[in-house]
Simulated assay, not measured.
Amino acid sequence: MAKREKATIDHWQGQEVPIGQSTDVKLAVSESYTGISLKIPIRIIRSQNEGPTVFITAALHGDELNGTGAIRQLLCDETLSLKCGNLILVPILNLLAFDRHSRYLPDRRDLNRCFPGSESGSLASRIASQIFSEIIGRSDYGIDLHTASVRRTNYPNVRADLRNPEAKRLAFSFGTEVILDASGPLGSLRREACHVGCPTIVLEGGEVWKVEPRIVETAVRGIKNVLVKLEMIDGEMDRPERQVVITRSQWIRADRGGFLQFHVHPGQIVETNQPLATNTDLLGREQSVLLAPYEGVVIGMTTLPAISPGEPVCHIGKFQKSTAGEELLESRSDSDNSLEERLVEHLASNVMVTEREPEGDSPAQP
């Protein structure tokens, strides 16, 4: 882990940020074609007492708006009162992509592959450098909110490098049923933040271009759970009874072009060789059936039934122990109107699902 000297939060690019107050600041990250400064709006909430600084960011990919909805809810929450520490809330991190309703910057680069950035590099690299030095450079912990990419949806899951004890603490505290253990891609914000000593986790949930109520509820609950765990706010943690760690996952891909009839929905527990989707031609004649390669949980899936050969259909996270699926189902059924039950019901409405009997010991399609 690289060592760093954390920057002070008392001042933000020449603006004073008083203790015990909420202050709106702006971070200049680039310029428009007309030379006008491009500034990211940020709210900093400071307690009267010393404590950790936590950043919450959304729309690092400009079309992923569920996190923006969650942060806006926090911004409007008059009951949110810090006992100690500081909170940095950034509802839109990638303004240039957000203005274009796009995942990517105008130079077609993915900002989430450009950290820690460079002051003299490409447009994306320069923006990443400013964000990294001014936000991550002031923070002790971070939560970065994401969704699935276009034409896909994700069952809410936290992604974290569980080799990092503090990132692991954040991941389990956040309170999703599913936790993916991975360090993240090279150049991603969470990976590079962890590398310089700012443990950071990612929430993946829902779809692009939407603010989905159940995903927002999950994000807000998780953020508050983390703040309770860090003793920054009062309250009780609200987590599911069971949480499962996924160390291996696989996208099941179509072997032929066609039109899909789905048999599972996001968040569903699946068994080995359970049918995931039937591929038919446009007149309804069956061409192939995609099967689950192992027992696990549906982390994500396409929402577009028209498919080409090789395109991803269903993302399955493999259970590490044989009883994991039963435990998750039991946990859901034991809770009356739990958030997890409502999440499954909500996300199931994004795809048309019909049942199909398992095909015995037939091999899974590639």
Rank of each mutant, 00 (worst) to 15 (best):
E177L: 06
G121R: 13
R108G: 05
A97Q: 11
R242V: 13
Y155I: 10
G117W: 07
E177W: 03
N164M: 10
D144L: 05
I143V: 09
L227W: 01
A171T: 13
S183M: 13
L180A: 05
F172M: 09
G187P: 11
P199L: 02
I136V: 15
G137T: 01
I215M: 02
I131S: 01
L227Y: 01
T218H: 01
F98K: 01
I135M: 00
R138N: 01
V202W: 04
D99L: 12
E241N: 06
H195E: 10
D238R: 12
A124Q: 07
H101I: 11
G222K: 12
G187R: 14
V216D: 01
K210W: 04
R113S: 05
R242M: 12
H146P: 04
R159W: 00
S183H: 11
I143D: 01
D99H: 13
H101F: 12
A182G: 08
L189H: 12
V178R: 13
R221P: 10
R151T: 15
I215G: 04
G142E: 03
D181K: 15
R103V: 06
Q130E: 13
R239T: 15
F172P: 08
N225F: 07
V216R: 00
R221D: 06
A160F: 09
T200D: 04
K210I: 01
A160H: 06
C198D: 02
S125P: 05
L105D: 05
A219N: 11
D110K: 15
S118E: 15
L180R: 10
Y141A: 00
K224H: 09
R113P: 02
A97E: 06
D234P: 04
D107F: 09
V211K: 15
R159D: 04
P165M: 06
G235E: 12
V196G: 04
E217Y: 03
